[in-house]
Design a protein around this nucleic acid. Structure first.
Lengths: 264, 264
DNA sequence: CAGTGGTCTAGACCACTGG
DNA sequence: CAGTGGTCTAGACCACTGC
């Protein structure tokens, strides 16, 4: 697929590429091909989250291109938050385990103060079981109806106040070995667990947001009176190869917090 | 301020910079300074939205730096959507007037099909008047309470169905000459009007999203039965120099549409 | 065909980190 | 001090646009 291997001769990869493409005259610059190769290595776990990848010079030697070309490839990976550059140290595989990335996908912030001011979240698992995917869940996770999934429900509290009620579904196959018990007893950040124990790293997510009236059960779990509308946030999170690995549906209180979004 | 002018001698700008900075050892690379200068020109209207800016070679000559340095500056401006690159043609000042940028800040999409499938929006101005900013509006727009603002209320319909009820506030000063009548009779995209007639270009926005129960008046304007919660989207839009230029508060129906957000 | 942005290279030097 | 990422340059060539 990748025409970068043509670089073993001395012709420019770009010119070779034009011929190799055939039907699609899709020109792919060298640095994009290098980016693809690095992506492969990330996906295959050649370097684990938190670890340093080889230096730009090393990668340049490995791929037989100039440092500048490797640099441009890494620039894009850094822009996509797949990798973190640290001047004077090296380039590291991004991880959700670090404090700063802890809530990377959580856009709910308190109306007053910032996320740090209310301290760490308290996570309370309400329910957790193994079951079969219904049609909707299967579609979102690109599974077949009836495939095994793990389902969990939890309440997140900030400063002691229940604020988020969250249901989440995981495809059982990639999380082989994950039991309902393990999930029930775990109270840390989910994405850190997935990385550390199942080599599943979430790199991207897509959310659908709606306003919704909670039912009686949901009200009780969040200790709310009926009649207060909530934000429904449905998230699908994806790994390196754009495979959906988690479906999550959160109900957010928005009387004390709000969902903040920056548009560029 | 900008140490780029030190480039008239042959020492590297960076070394000069280190001394010039003084208190803050804040090192600012050349390309950042060039970016700042280009930003100035954009802000001052040297090149208008839709027009081409000078070629990279021209700018390199003008600033007495290499093409690569100008290139890196423009790369960042392009990443921030302030400028659009077109291979073989040139680099253009971004504009909201183009079809593709029409709904750049509108993240509400239909549950089925995409935004194009429901055709163009119908905009119905409900009310429009000149008034004085209250405390909340003043804070959001960085004005003083009592400063003159223009307020408008409108309903946006898609495929004939009222879907969004929107209130918006504009500081009167930068929109000098804009009357309530002009706004009332205008039915096109707002940001295009601002650019064309007042040289106010929105480059960035910040939204606060909540779930909310509409009151009787809001229900009537959207032709909704009471009891359906809506999405409240409060947006502040900013110009080049990060000055807020518009406060907008939309109520979105989310039974047929949803707010879509991509997280990276 | 000339002019524009886009890619690639090679080399020099700077800023930052850690031993 | 060596090693890493970050900046800057100069030059060659490619891809695309429009005349």
């Amino acid at each position: 697929m990748s025409a970068v291997f043509s670089k073993i001769d001395d012709t420019l990869a770009s010119s070779v590429d034009s011929f190799a493409a055939g039907a699609t005259p899709a020109f792919s610059p060298l640095y994009q091909q290098i980016k693809g190769l690095i992506l492969q290595s990330l996906h295959h776990g050649e370097w684990k989250p938190g670890e340093a990848i080889p230096s730009e010079m090393d990668l340049a030697a490995r791929f037989k291109v100039s440092q500048g070309t490797v640099r441009k490839a890494i620039d894009e990976l850094a822009a996509e938050n797949l990798v973190v550059r640290r001047q004077g140290k090296g380039t590291y595989v991004a991880t959700h385990a670090e404090q700063q990335m802890q809530y990377r996908f959580l856009k709910l912030v308190p109306d007053k103060g910032d996320a740090t001011s209310e301290g760490p979240a308290h996570r309370q698992i309400v329910d957790c079981k193994r079951q079969r995917a219904n049609a909707e869940t299967a579609r979102a996770l690109e599974l077949h109806t009836g495939d095994a999934v793990l389902q969990a429900r939890r309440v997140l509290s900030f400063a002691g106040v229940p604020t988020i009620l969250e249901d989440l579904w995981l495809p059982a196959a990639p999380f082989k070995g994950l039991t309902a018990e393990r999930l029930r007893d775990y109270h840390g950040p989910m994405y850190a667990l997935f990385e550390a124990e199942f080599s599943v790293r979430m790199v991207r997510a897509s959310e659908k947001i709606r306003a919704l009236m909670p039912d009686a059960e949901q009200c009780e779990l969040l200790q709310l009176d009926q009649g207060m509308p909530l934000l429904s946030v449905e998230r699908v999170a994806y790994t390196y190869n754009d495979k959906p690995m988690e479906l999550r549906r959160g109900l957010y209180r928005t009387d004390t917090h709000h969902y903040r979004n920056e548009l560029n």
